[in-house]
Design a binder for these strands. Structure first.
Lengths: 224, 224
DNA sequence: GCAAAAGTGTTAATGGTACACCCATGA
DNA sequence: TCATGGGTGTACCATTAACACTTTTGC
């Protein structure tokens, strides 16, 4: 009864111990392919498995604070924008203890974020989204899948994938990225038509050199 | 260093105490209006405020288990299907201590779920979504808004809002509900066309009595 | 019988898809 | 100079939006 009352007001003096972690699916566009960043680590029974970057939250951190801290600790990335995907609370998802994880995704330009190999990370690598390793730890295969779907939902009808590209990019690069993310093929003219009538790009009037055809470089407009 | 290592493998021996709660936005269709169920309670500084049904998670429960338990404890509802909305982890969202909450939404047929006024609940009421009380506790105004948006996203292009209606219903009722949820007006003929070519309804060949026009009653098909 | 809602098809507009040729550049 | 990719416009198709009259029922 006292128990029930306390429960009801959402405060209990002796809440159980439970780790809350954040895991981050970092997507990038590398070597003309849509990729995800994974770290090889050993956690519990998972020896030398690949994991999303992730780690435990402290009492004075928000979820996003935690994601920032964890991602920096494992990769050296700073000042990243996160989008929440969902929270996973199954009882047996972690072999050692109860761990609830909040999953985020982030889109980054690899050129701006060189990878730093940090302590306790055996390796860190960009994986092509169509060639993800088999030996993923925990339920991270599901997390990756959910994060990818969530990202596609967020991007649908927006084509705002500029966070993944350099400041100036060609329309072919933008289209290729879009095709990679959604695993589709698009007509070049229709793609241009759509993106132009969205009115989100401006032509820098510079041409990209070292590539045939001499394509113009575009950037996203300031206010969009 | 030892600290950092432990953090990295996502397990710390002394994780801090932190309540994890679930809050549930229960949507229903009552008196021809799209509504949400709120409970009036007193929590901390929030005296006699309206809250989503919610409560703390125990160590042996999954997130959904917790939502089931909490909703039953506050309303008497059982066997409800939940959809996760998102997780809120701001530091100051709860006046008494750190509370992280995972928000869910549920769609129910009020006829199947009579409200039971439970202990510690001062009142419990269906509120029209366009007339939600001002004095909501915590950040529940935001939770309601997010849950509503998330629900709309899930339902978009599906028109599957049957969970909110009695087994047999008229097309006008279905259309009205849909218009309520999305705050839009639809053309009757176009709505019928769309819903019929989805092939999800069957005509019971019964007519609804006590209402002008003598509309047919429909139900959702078994396999959809 | 009259007011209110149910039921029913057609047309116009819009948006999306398919498609071919010339031009610029790098090799 | 030639091979490769960049740049451009139009016709067709599919989907959606707009719209008015007749029938049924409750009161």
């Amino acid at each position: 009864m006292e128990q029930e009352k306390l429960q009801h007001i959402q405060v209990k003096p002796n809440s159980f111990e439970c780790s809350i972690t954040t895991d981050i699916a970092v997507f990038g566009y590398v070597e003309d392919r849509f990729k995800i960043l994974l770290t090889k680590r050993t956690v519990g029974d998972f020896k030398n498995h690949w994991f999303l970057p992730g780690g435990v939250m402290e009492s004075n951190e928000t979820l996003v604070d935690c994601a920032q801290k964890v991602l920096f600790a494992l990769t050296g990335f700073k000042d990243i924008h996160f989008e929440q995907v969902r929270t996973y609370g199954d009882l047996e998802r972690h072999p050692l203890k109860r761990v609830i994880t909040v999953c985020f995704y982030a889109l980054i330009k690899p050129e701006n974020h060189p990878i730093a190999l940090k302590e306790n990370v055996e390796s860190i690598e960009w994986f092509d989204m169509e060639n993800i390793p088999e030996n993923l730890g925990f339920d991270h295969a599901r997390l990756i899948n959910d994060a990818h779907m969530h990202m596609k939902d967020n991007l649908k009808d927006k084509l705002i994938v500029g966070e993944l590209l350099p400041e100036k990019f060609t329309l072919a690069e933008l289209q290729n990225l879009y095709e990679n993310i959604f695993s589709i093929k698009l007509d070049r003219r229709n793609f241009r038509k759509r993106i132009f009538q969205m009115d989100i790009l401006e032509n820098t009037n510079e041409k990209k050199t070292g590539v045939k055809g001499g394509p113009f470089l575009y950037r996203y407009k300031e206010n969009r």
